[in-house]
Design a protein around this nucleic acid. Structure first.
Lengths: 197, 197
DNA sequence: GTCTATATCCAGATAGAC
DNA sequence: GTCTATCTGGATATAGAC
């Protein structure tokens, strides 16, 4: 039973975790409220005590995910190291987190949400507002690296940033859909895309 | 009105194209039969004259897509050029087809179907049977290239093949979700991942 | 706060007229 | 072959007991 405020908050988190699990596996529309409730170990009716609708649940998850991504991105940008080293660190860290179930699921969730049609309007709104930053951060780092000569310069910073993120996204999807057989590449292999040699 | 056999076949194709359009944009479950019918310009009831169910439609699309992919893959393998050149050609061609709406949609469709939960069982069956080949083809080419020294050899052929396809998949998704702003990278940029230098 | 039972709605699928 | 009208099932959301 959940009575005080802290426990209520915790139950909310449990529901969110269950929802992330199911949404990442099946997508928004294929996932039923009943299934989320079952995963969270509660009755279907109770879920409505914590969230008004399935869409609100989805939107909350998207919001959380983007906040975390933006924090990570701005943390990266403020590191006191040269641009190419920032990219190296970013790749190392992202490949590490690929092992964590939660991270891969979050990437999937955002990827799905970006298939804008069929995504709740409020979720799209959040995406529009917040999702540009990680791209912009990497693009700025790439630009700085090109200026000082450490980053590959036959491609614009924008395109490099897009390549960076699409590669990570592709790997995360692979990770989610092929849990058993998935092998993480070495950071150095991916770095070859961006570092000038 | 559709009377003879050829016209019937054509109408089937129209419905398949409409379904691919909608499934790629919204996914299997978020897409309604009504919507597909409207996109194809026919009534909802008529669709059942051509396909038994939404799932059959989906499975047919997956089947078509995999057949085409496998044809392309085996065509690539039999080209009379060295391995690194095969990879080059594959990248050039794939980046070209990225411009075609249909190709990107097809990639999306397969990516979605791979989120196995929520995918119809027959579609999963087809995927299991047929989807390994493109990976295997690229892995074999990578292995041959490593043997003769033209391909990057600090990563196994399997991982290189996975990197190859996840990169393409990531770009296709980007293409579908950001039609307006999407810029295709130069083939040489991607080649850097695989070619030994 | 939590559950069970139920109302409501909507999409998939069918039937039948033309 | 094609359409409109209808049946049916399942999922969201609500109501009400505990």
């Amino acid at each position: 039973m959940v009575t005080n405020r802290k426990e209520k908050e915790q139950r909310r988190e449990e529901i969110l975790a269950a929802a992330l699990d199911r949404f990442a596996a099946k997508g928004l529309h294929a996932t039923t409220i009943t299934e989320i409730a079952r995963t969270a170990g509660i009755s279907q009716g109770l879920l409505y005590h914590y969230f008004r609708s399935k869409e609100e649940l989805f939107t909350a998850l998207i919001g959380d995910a983007l906040v975390k991504m933006n924090q990570a991105a701005s943390g990266l940008e403020s590191l006191p190291v040269p641009p190419d080293e920032k990219i190296r660190i970013a790749i190392v860290e992202l490949l590490k987190t690929l092992h964590e179930e939660t991270f891969s699921r979050t990437v999937m969730l955002i990827a799905q949400a970006n298939l804008s049609e069929g995504t709740p309007e409020e979720a799209k709104e959040v995406l529009r507002r917040e999702s540009g930053e990680p791209y912009a951060v990497i693009a700025r780092i790439m630009a700085a690296g090109q200026k000082e000569g450490s980053i590959f310069d036959q491609e614009s910073p924008d395109v490099l940033s897009m390549l960076f993120w699409t590669t990570i996204k592709g790997l995360a999807m692979q990770r989610v859909t092929n849990r058993e057989s998935f092998k993480v590449p070495h950071p150095e292999s991916l770095l070859r895309l961006f570092i000038r040699r």
